[in-house]
């Protein structure tokens, strides 16, 4: 158990939590707290330690250092009790391909020791939730990627969990399937289910998360709501400039000077952070900087990550 006063609604609490595989430290002493009813996000590139953290929370991977409590219990000794109260959606669907859609619900529910009568009711509701009612008796294999994902998520809800862990829930889905899935996750949020999400998609984190931590190389580099993080690290507006030649970008950079508060140089473009895009545009025109394309947008978590780590997420 973690010592010290708990936030009364802290469902997950980590202090100095560490996971090492031999010499490689995947999670390097992280502190965080997830409160009841919120959507909490781990944002970071692949390899940042998000999945390792999730596996520790879901009690399938023992921590190698620090403290962790989940649902006020200790994963080291109360694994089965904790797992009976959480729902886990892994990065790759691990549906039971030997069973039908319906049996996936029933059999999975039986692992939690739930009576069949209860399971039949819940499975019916969850089929509707996943919009798979007409595929009830089909096998899992022929379902589309989006359907499998929805089924995996719905199946994770069969035990009516207090806490649902979703690892990269929309990776590999087409935009339409992603939006349908987000809609389902909003639904859960409205019902007061506590969600923990890992993602390397900025838009996903911004849309879904109440609070999030930014992870990089096993460490937490900052935390807060998406709005707070943007406010703290970057200006509200960004202008992206692309040039025909690297030399032009070079020249523009040296003459842009005071046109923006801060300038980030990427391989293929310049990012100008500003509080007043109009003024910046005027300043660029005065300096006769004429990029190939010019895009003005709101600052996003992508910019926060860049400011915090000096790297883009897709690298």
């Amino acid at each position: 158990m973690v010592d010290g006063p708990l936030h009364p609604d802290a469902l997950v609490r980590a202090r100095g939590l560490t996971k090492a595989f031999g010499d490689f430290v995947a999670v390097d002493g992280v502190d965080f707290e997830v409160r009841r009813g919120e959507v909490f996000g781990f944002l970071g590139p692949n390899g940042a330690g998000k999945t390792s953290t999730m596996r520790m929370i879901s009690c399938v991977s023992p921590s190698t250092g620090g403290e962790l409590s989940v649902l006020h219990l200790d994963p080291r000794t109360d694994g089965p009790a904790i797992r009976s109260r959480i729902g886990v959606v892994p990065q790759e669907d691990n549906l039971d391909t030997e069973l039908s859609v319906w049996d996936n619900f029933i059999v999975y529910g039986r692992y939690f020791g739930l009576p069949r009568r209860v399971l039949r009711e819940r499975a019916q509701e969850l089929l509707e939730f996943a919009r798979l009612t007409d595929r009830r008796d089909d096998r899992v294999d022929p379902l589309s990627g989006g359907m499998k994902r929805r089924l995996t998520i719905a199946r994770a809800l069969i035990n009516d969990p207090d806490l649902v862990l979703l690892d990269e829930p929309t990776t590999g889905l087409d935009p339409q399937a992603r939006h349908l899935l987000w809609d389902r996750l909003y639904g859960l949020k409205r019902r007061g289910v506590t969600l923990i999400i890992t993602t390397h998609y900025m838009d996903e984190a911004e849309q879904l998360c109440d609070r999030l931590v930014v992870m990089d190389q096993g460490r937490i580099v900052d935390e807060g709501s998406p709005r707070e993080l943007i406010h703290r690290h970057v200006t509200p507006e960004v202008i992206e400039l692309r040039f025909a030649e690297p030399a032009e970008q070079e020249a523009a950079l040296s003459s842009a000077g005071e046109a923006a508060e801060r300038i980030e140089v990427l391989a293929d473009r310049l990012l100008l952070y500003t509080r007043d895009a109009e003024a910046t545009h005027r300043a660029l025109a005065e300096r006769s900087i004429e990029p190939l394309t010019e895009l003005t947008r709101r600052a996003s978590l992508e910019d926060v990550f860049l400011a915090l780590t000096g790297r883009t997420l897709e690298e």
Partner: peptide, 12 residues
């Protein structure tokens, strides 16, 4: 099939 990964996320 990763069947057991799914199962070990339950109380089993």
């Amino acid at each position: 099939a990763k069947l057991y990964d799914a199962i070990l996320a339950t109380p089993l």
